[in-house]
Nucleic acid binder design. Structure first.
Lengths: 183, 183
DNA sequence: TTCCGCATGTAACCAGTTACATGATTAC
DNA sequence: GTAATCATGTAACTGGTTACATGCGGAA
């Protein structure tokens, strides 16, 4: 697909500036799609030319002006069509996995240190996701529509991180010498 | 990183042709890194210029000639250095997740059908991985070194697929009307 | 005779990253 | 004074995808 449709989804929830979108791609939607601000601006330009979004310049005091983008009817139509298309299966590219596979060609302990570091990164992300879940969706059983969909995506992020942590632990258990492990 | 190092790892296990490498990227290593044959050939060219690999033309009867690539000492050195560097955390890009999040903007049932389709794709991949595990690593407790590392990466693929299936199921349970579910 | 597997590639293109650039305000 | 946050962008580059091209052998 590419960023376009992720932006359409994001704008369907809330009109916002490129800056704001870029920040949201560091959070909520960002669990499953990332984008730098440079790319967001570039793509927004294209989308405006295509007539999917319109910009409204908002002046602020004490802060730079901003362009707030909103979906047009064409944008909404595009989004609807895209949703009906098949989604291609995600490709997981894990540099860490390649390093683990090739570890015997270098210093295995260095690779293990990386696995440990990644484990912590995933644990941190899991914590933020869980805090998010607790704070934003305290009563999941009652959720309907949009909110339920958002919740489900967050749940996906949570189980992804849990899986990653478990995998790191499996590697660490298997590759840490028993002498170190038991002491 | 990029493909280069994945190819170095692959060649460290077994010298092979570009065609063969491309096929392996559809399997074993491919759980965590993919590449088309076009890209493999392109990168192999670059790697040969850099002196990381050498090609040996092998004539075959009844089949086209092939170039079998092998690691050089420089290639091995490069691999060793790369293994000592930190790995950047993977970015998971899931088109399906974006569709789930935006589902309310279109036909929710169409998105659910996609979730169901993806569930089956993941289930199929899980089956191949499990068959692989059983066949190639019947006695995991005894594994050491390279073989153990390969096994651990396969385990990662397995838990990734399991996680994906569970997530799909969670979505299906949450979004399928109870009337259809209980029947 | 048509399609699949083996085997290697080129060319055009697109998506995404990194580096660079500007400028005001606020908090330490 | 120094760094962080808000806000928008351009330019160069890299990595990866898609389309196209060739040619033999064997199976259906």
């Amino acid at each position: 697909m590419s960023l376009e449709h992720a932006i359409l989804v994001s704008l369907s929830e809330q009109s916002s500036s490129g800056y704001d979108l870029a920040r949201r791609f560091d959070r909520s939607i960002g669990h499953f799609w990332t984008a730098t601000h440079q790319q967001v601006y570039k793509v927004l330009g294209r989308m405006e030319s295509a007539g999917w979004v319109v910009a409204d310049v908002v002046e602020q005091d004490g802060r730079p002006d901003k362009k707030v983008y909103a979906l047009t009817d064409d944008g909404r139509a595009e989004l609807r069509e895209w949703l009906a298309e098949p989604a291609q299966p995600e490709v997981t590219r894990s540099e860490l996995a390649v390093k683990v596979r090739g570890a015997a060609n270098g210093d295995v302990r260095a690779v293990l240190a990386e696995v440990r570091r990644h484990r912590e990164l995933h644990a941190d992300r899991l914590d933020t996701y869980l805090a998010n879940e607790k704070h934003e969706f305290p009563d999941p059983a009652r959720l309907r529509g949009r909110r339920l969909h958002q919740y489900l995506v967050l749940r996906g992020g949570i189980s992804l991180e849990r899986g990653a942590i478990e995998w790191c632990d499996e590697i660490l258990t298997a590759l840490t010498p028993a002498t170190k492990r038991t002491r």
